[in-house]
């Protein structure tokens, strides 16, 4: 629990760690919607091309700068394990922002968003930031889900919405930045609340399911 001190003084971490915040984001959605492709596109300038057989491919870190703060984004990708349903729920733990991805050329992936939302409700921490991401928007000829339909679903569930294409790169950066900004805002407001009531932070950190406790435990 040494991280408790760190959380209340983010600037001291920044001096040593070269970033101000570490956020964990999660990509979910049906298989084949292009989650990993989105991640590749987003992190393509930073991932290490060497293949380390003991670790597999680790390319999931990208540092961004928002409003003068350096934010290290650790993006979790469940791609390949979607069918191990009880394992994928393990990824929810500690996630501060979730990007729900569907494929505009596949009706099924869009319909399943409702199930994924329910899944988030059950497994993710309360108040986790969510963003509905419509991928493959470049494939206009194959599109079966219109932008309006996506927008409508997002509004219905009170979450944000963006259309992008991992293929062309359109809006990919925006999607992650938008998510990072929202998490940052929430995180900062939480922090100030904690500072106001210092005793409470200990309690939050003792809860293993809490996004805060998990993320801070890992950043040190």
């Amino acid at each position: 629990m040494s991280s408790a001190a760190g959380s209340s003084t983010p600037t001291s971490i920044a001096a040593q760690k070269a970033y101000d915040y570490l956020f964990k984001l999660l990509l979910i959605g049906d298989s084949g919607v292009g989650k990993t492709c989105l991640l590749f596109r987003f992190a393509e300038n930073s991932f290490n091309p060497t293949f380390i057989s003991t670790i597999g491919i680790d390319f999931k870190i990208q540092t961004v700068e928002i409003d003068g703060k350096r934010i290290k984004l650790q993006v979790w990708d469940t791609a390949g394990q979607e069918r191990f349903r009880t394992i994928t729920t393990a990824y929810y733990r500690g996630a501060m922002g979730i990007l729900l991805v569907y494929d505009v050329t596949s009706k099924k992936t869009f319909e399943n968003i409702t199930n994924w939302l329910k899944n988030i409700e059950e497994h993710a921490a309360e108040g986790v930031e969510q963003l509905l991401v419509a991928n493959k928007c470049d494939q206009e000829d194959k599109r079966v889900i219109s932008e309006e339909q996506g927008q409508l679903l997002a509004v219905h569930h009170g979450i944000d919405f963006i259309e992008c294409s991992a293929m062309t790169g359109e809006n990919v950066r925006e999607a992650f930045y938008r998510m990072a900004r929202r998490v940052k805002t929430k995180h900062e407001s939480k922090e100030s609340a904690q500072r106001a009531d210092g005793s409470k932070s200990v309690k939050i950190l003792s809860d293993p399911g809490s996004p805060l406790g998990k993320s801070l435990g890992n950043c040190c």
Partner: peptide, 14 residues
């Protein structure tokens, strides 16, 4: 076995 598939999937995509 989930990791086997995940690793192959990532090579496949990357």
């Amino acid at each position: 076995i989930g990791i086997v598939r995940q690793d192959l999937y990532q090579v496949h995509l990357r």
